[in-house]
Amino acid sequence: MSCYIIAEIGVNHSGSVEVAKEMIDAAKKSGADAVKFQTFTAEKLVSSNTPKVKYQESTTDKDESHYQMIKSLEFSYEDHIPVFEYCKESNIDFISTPYDIESASFLVSIGVEIFKTASADIVDLSLHKFIAQNAKIAIVSTGMATLGEIEPVVEIYRQHDCKLTLLHCVSNYPCATESLNLNVITTLKSAFLCNVGFSDHAVGALPAVASVALGASVIEKHFTLDKTMVGPDHKASSDPAEFTELVKAIRETEIALGSPIKSIQQEEMQMRKVSRKSLFLTKDVKYGEVIMSDMLTLKRPGTGIYEAELSIIIGSISTMDLFAGDMLKIGDFRLA
């Protein structure tokens, strides 16, 4: 199956339904399978003394508190409805990350079927239980988490028979190449025996492409219309041109990965016939003469008898007069 590619709009809409719709159009045009939003109320999510993290300090107003930043990016429940409907009209999946059970319950009420949880909420087991009971598909980011913290979350989804994908993630924006640890994708697959993807906070397309080669079935990457827009996540997001190239690179990688079955490709057939070696005679051989090893050599093309049959041919008897330089063929000899 094709890798499922999510354009993480997150809060890059800055609270505007019209901007959100414009981003949906751009994501669809760029080749995304889904767009993802965030559903929260600032009052429920952030206490007044919560500090900003380093990347937020560098991309937002320094005089603005963490709470004020989150409040300015809030999408009301009412705003979700036209955006959700617009996704259906545009034939692109709508996903959201609820940050509390009330927000998750709202998403269920409007018909959302695919839920994504943030890495920070790996420890919110009540939220995971609610999603497992109500969602058809859950996508769980695992940034900042140990395998021991991931295990009980996986068990919750298994108990409720909810289809689960874990996303390998490093929770920094952008993430340094040396911190990506993409081999964790195979670790998660073997440890939890479920679908695994990659939430990509790195610069460029290469990490996502490598993760697909490692077996990632879902790729999520932050998406913006313009990196210079106001907000904490735009700078570390992909613009439409970059996202288009990302999707193209992933699709080409899937084609290149092909099948695990080792088979002769059609475009190899001419090369196989021309460049392989067949058995040729180095001297004349008379009718009835025994064929010996010093009468044979290997030369191109490969349309004759391969060396693997040499043990059968040596000691056989010529069925006709043969000549030096001839390619040996079936029918030129018989067993003694």
Rank of each mutant, 00 (worst) to 15 (best):
S2L: 03
E8I: 06
V11T: 15
H13P: 04
H13Y: 06
M23P: 08
I24S: 05
S30N: 09
A32K: 00
F40C: 02
K44Y: 07
S47T: 14
S48M: 09
S48V: 12
S58E: 10
T60F: 07
H66K: 15
Q68A: 15
S76H: 03
H80E: 01
I81Q: 10
P82L: 09
F84D: 04
E85W: 03
C87L: 08
L107R: 03
I110M: 12
I114S: 07
F115S: 04
L127Y: 14
K129A: 12
Q133M: 13
Q133P: 01
M144V: 06
G148V: 02
E149H: 10
P152D: 04
V154G: 08
Q159Y: 03
C162D: 08
K163L: 14
T165V: 13
A176P: 05
S179A: 10
N183F: 10
K189W: 02
C194W: 05
D200P: 02
A202E: 02
A208M: 00
G215L: 04
K221W: 03
H222I: 05
H222S: 11
L225R: 03
D226F: 00
V230C: 02
A236Q: 09
E242C: 02
T244F: 07
A249V: 06
A249N: 14
I250F: 06
E252G: 04
A256Q: 10
S259E: 09
I264G: 07
Q265K: 15
M269Q: 11
Q270L: 13
R272G: 06
R276V: 01
R276I: 10
S278C: 09
L279Q: 03
F280K: 08
K286G: 12
M295F: 15
K299L: 13
K299G: 01
G302D: 11
G304K: 06
I305G: 07
Y306N: 05
E309Y: 10
S311P: 01
I314E: 13
T319Y: 12
M320C: 11
F323D: 04
F323E: 14
K329H: 10
I330S: 09
R334D: 09
R334A: 15
L335C: 03
